[in-house]
């Protein structure tokens, strides 16, 4: 049971990493293909930061002392 949970958590981490790489590539494409890309870049950066803080830093778990 614990091993299954561990595998599921590791898989989740991999998916988050893939999402971050895709967002970075999209960011790079927007920077060179779209005129005045600042707003789009900010939105993508916020999505990146949310993914890292929520899934890697466990932000929503902060108030749960037992974990």
């Amino acid at each position: 049971m614990d091993e299954t949970r561990k595998r599921a958590q590791l898989r989740l981490g991999l998916w988050v990493f893939i999402a971050l790489i895709i967002l970075t590539v999209v960011e790079l494409w927007i920077a060179f293909a779209v005129p005045r890309p600042l707003l789009y870049l900010v939105v993508i950066n916020l999505a990146d930061a949310w993914l890292i803080m929520e899934y890697f830093m466990h932000l929503s778990r902060m108030w749960r002392a037992e974990e």
Binding site: A31, D48, I52
Partner: peptide
């Protein structure tokens, strides 16, 4: 890592 996510476009991508 989160900080770099903001620094990267600030230095390299914004135009």
């Amino acid at each position: 890592d989160v900080v770099w996510v903001f620094i990267y476009p600030t230095l390299y991508l914004v135009s």
